[in-house]
Design a protein around this nucleic acid. Structure first.
Lengths: 192, 192
DNA sequence: GTCTATAATTCGATAGAC
DNA sequence: GTCTATCGAATTATAGAC
């Protein structure tokens, strides 16, 4: 038992590489992030990156390991689920650059796009299933459009009006919308 | 007068390059789209591309010339504006790959992102101004999050649930949301 | 384990013949 | 106007010394 899980020799290096890779992929996207730059950030030789991860694609796969960490929404009052979800997305994005790396890369890299699809299918789908009536797939898809649209415009494209919006203002606007996508019916919406 | 606007000698070549560039930038993004490939698609020599457009950045700028062609929404019944806008977005995106090129490139290329910001500021802003009360900037920003989120998930990431959704179903769901962003008040929304 | 040296490509861009 | 030839730089990836 202990032998398979022993004190770790210098996997610290491996973790340092992964951290540096996350930053570079997030900042520059898949193609512009170079192994050389990642190695330099990690303070080691580029050859080490190849030794530990084989090639660039595998390095990205290791760096883009990601968990949405969706909160358990089943015990949240029904009419607060949307706001809770909106707040979680903003928190999650501010605290972890992995999703930014994944999104940036997914736009031009096929493997990254596939991973993105997997993550949303495996993590958002079940979460919606627990609380939503009717067509779960459609509801999960609609939530994805609004959530990723927010992330894209605020963190990637940095559209000024979206960047300028206060966190709480965003939650106030988007909460009811996500709520509607999760539990409402199409067309049956009243805006006053 | 005629001399400045004469029959055009072989600007057909120039237009062929621009068309090929649009396709490549849309399919591969800025970095992966190569001048060599674009030239091959256009059936001419790579050196011609440089001669006509100077460098890769200027070529992209020429290929990403884009007009949202937002319809005049002032004469549309107020409660139909959202649906009309949703339908227009789907139409516009299906018929022109320029916006796809712009979006794909904007995610990893600074100049493309800046152009994206300009387009939304110059075209969406005024359109919203004509019909929306209160904080126009916020409303335009919210509309951008949902519209670009739809485009990202449906055309770029190709999330299965979003791809599977019928055009009319999407309009039915998104119409009221865009309507709400344009004319409603935060929190004052009722989903039944 | 870590790094040096370099192979093998690929790309943007230029010079110049025709 | 069009194309050939090529430069110079940058990249991933490998081989092998220490």
């Amino acid at each position: 038992m202990v032998s398979t899980d022993r004190p770790r020799r210098s996997d610290a290096t491996k973790e340092a590489i992964r951290a540096a890779a996350r930053e570079r992929f997030a900042a520059d996207g898949y193609e512009r992030a170079t192994i050389r730059a990642i190695a330099a950030d990690a303070g080691i030789d580029p050859a080490m990156v190849m030794r530990y991860f084989g090639n660039k694609e595998k390095l990205f796969a290791a760096a883009a390991e990601f968990d949405l960490r969706l909160p358990d929404l089943t015990d949240v009052p029904v009419d607060e689920i949307g706001a809770r979800l909106a707040r979680h997305v903003l928190d999650r994005w501010d605290g972890d650059e992995t999703l930014m790396a994944l999104l940036r890369a997914a736009v031009t890299n096929q493997a990254a796009a596939e991973r993105m699809r997997e993550i949303f299918a495996a993590q958002l789908g079940p979460a919606v299933l627990a609380i939503a009536p009717g067509d779960v797939s459609t509801r999960a898809g609609l939530v994805a459009t609004q959530v990723l649209g927010l992330v894209l415009t605020r963190y990637v494209l940095r559209l000024p009006p979206v960047v300028a919006m206060d966190r709480d203002v965003l939650v106030t606007w988007l909460g009811p919308i996500l709520q509607h996508y999760l539990t409402g019916e199409p067309k049956h919406i009243k805006s006053v």
